[in-house]
Design a binder for these strands. Structure first.
Length: 468
RNA sequence: GGCGCGGUAGCCAAGUGGUAAGGCAGAGGUCUGCAAAACCUUUAUCACCGGUUCGAAUCCGGUCCGCGCCUCCA
């Protein structure tokens, strides 16, 4: 089965066919580094991680580019308030960003271009647009894109601009744009910019936001590429403007597939900086949750579905993950036993793998993929109990889990936990007490282990300890 | 107002024509010194109204409710 995605451009599910067979170029709108990203932002990056992992899982070679917006109103304002040079100010948040995606186990993109290091490319693009006659220089020294000279404007957002409204607004427009919907390609320096400015053919200034993504995506992926993603809030005007600029400059189709993910909600409202209802990853970690748990929570809902963030959801995630961990542990224990049940187990694994893949190929239907995983867990657990999954059969399942985890990134199949000697000694002591039927002593030791953060489970093959 | 998304069990969430996946929680059971874990069983007619159809959560029309974008925003 070919992989299919919902393309915002056509508003329908389409079969995915890359420009170059077997290779995918994708551009993902990244963070504006003026502050710590919140987990709503990370939902988008998680979705992109799932997308790139799924593409790789399906055999594609992926080249992902994620920009770092390090010059805009907010970064400039922030750096001035902090009394720091722009670079120094944004460095802190760039570092934090990379630290966070590591915690969330998000696979790094191939390229992370920074806007401030691609000013030349942006200037070149603006010049091309002026030459093409779709941009104009305003009295204040800024350069604007004229949407009236790009008939296809609105193709992505499907908006029809109201001419009357435009006229009414233009009179009050302090920037003397020809039309209110025209957007800045190059912003002339003003006082609020401080010392942040670059020389250009139109004087000192800085690039507009949209031009950044056009210039950098084309630099690293070519004039036309396969996939462009972002949150739905970027659909208009950001992505619409990118299309206009890029296609007006090159005369070619900019992007074939536009994928947008829905928002993360808190108490029924979009999580956002301006509403103040956000949690950074650090906030959530400080409450005792792990990056892995946050990853699971952000991953388990389909990307085009709004996801309501709750701490209860995180607690649910923890339990689900525990069950998966337990499953891995049982498999490892079963794997050292004499072989049994290989054929039946292999067939079960094949079915699970097929269902898992089918879900992902269907516009990243993660719910279907996870259902396939949990069905496998249930069935194999049953087989283990019945002694029908041992030795190489158990290894087969572990191999399948490792394979699925290339996409999920949460299973930790090969994680091995070392039990400190002190803890092991307590476990042994408790076991001796149990043998002697001194249950009061055994339970006291179990309480002590619990207090130290370890959980003990008695199995037919002896006690098992793990971190709580 | 324009454009768009969504309303499925206590909570989360798949399913776009043939009588409702999965996760969490709950209940009962097996196992266990007890517990934990695991396993088994069990819990819904899909916001509402009308229509199409042999048959609809799924298609069409309407209503109500929630949310997003239209300005910086993942």
């Amino acid at each position: 089965m070919p992989i299919r995605f919902y393309n915002s451009l056509s508003r329908s599910i389409e079969e995915f066919n890359p420009i170059r067979p077997g290779r995918v170029g994708m551009y993902t709108c990244g963070p504006t580094v003026y502050n710590y990203a919140h987990i709503g932002n990370y939902r988008a990056y998680m979705f992109e991680d799932l997308l790139r992992r799924t593409l790789k899982f399906c055999g594609f070679e992926v080249r992902q580019v994620m920009n770092l917006t390090d010059v805009d109103d907010k970064t400039i304002r922030g750096s001035r308030e902090a009394g720091l040079p722009l670079d120094e100010y944004t460095r802190k948040y760039k570092d934090a960003f990379f630290e966070d995606i590591g915690v969330l186990r998000i696979e790094p993109a191939e390229v992370y271009p920074e806007a401030t290091r691609h000013i030349d490319e942006m200037i070149g693009l603006v010049e091309a647009l002026l030459t093409a006659g779709v941009a104009y220089r305003a009295d204040d020294g800024s350069v604007y894109f004229s949407i009236s000279r790009f008939p296809r404007y609105g193709q992505l957002a499907r908006i029809a601009l109201d001419p009357e409204r435009q006229v009414a607004r233009v009179r009050h427009d302090e920037y003397a744009k020809e039309s209110i919907a025209d957007f800045a390609l190059w912003k002339a320096w003003d006082e609020a910019d401080g010392d942040v400015a670059w020389e250009s053919p139109w004087g000192r200034g800085r690039p507009g936001w949209h031009i950044e993504c056009s210039a950098m995506s084309m630099r690293y992926l070519g004039k036309s590429f396969d996939i462009h993603t972002g949150g739905v809030d970027n659909l208009f005007p950001h992505h619409e403007d990118e299309i206009a600029q890029s296609e007006a400059a090159t005369g070619r189709k900019f992007v074939n597939y536009w994928l947008h993910c829905a928002h993360l909600m808190v108490d029924g409202r979009k999580m956002s900086k301006s509403l103040g209802n956000f949690y950074t990853l650090r906030d959530v970690l400080d409450r005792g949750f792990s990056g892995r748990e946050v990853r699971w929570e952000l991953l388990r809902t389909h990307y085009r579905q709004t996801l309501n963030f709750t701490f209860q959801g995180l607690r649910d995630a923890r339990v689900s993950l525990n069950r998966l961990d337990e499953f891995v542990t049982r498999l490892k224990e079963a794997a050292v036993e004499p072989n049994a049940g290989r054929d039946a187990v292999e067939e079960r694994c094949r079915n699970a793998a097929a269902a898992f893949l089918a879900g992902l190929e269907d516009d990243l239907n993660i719910s279907a993929a996870l259902a396939a995983l949990f069905d496998l867990v249930r069935d194999v657990n049953r087989m283990i109990d019945a002694g029908e999954c041992r030795g190489n059969a158990a290894e087969t399942v572990l191999g399948r889990l490792r394979d699925m985890d290339r996409v999920l990134g949460v299973l930790d199949v090969d994680r091995s936990e070392t039990v400190p000697g002190e803890i092991q000694a307590l476990v042994d002591e408790r076991q001796a007490a149990r043998k002697a039927r001194d249950y009061a002593r055994a339970d006291a030791i179990r309480d002590e282990l619990t207090a130290k953060g370890w959980t003990i489970e008695d199995t037919p093959k002896g006690p098992r300890v793990k971190r709580a």
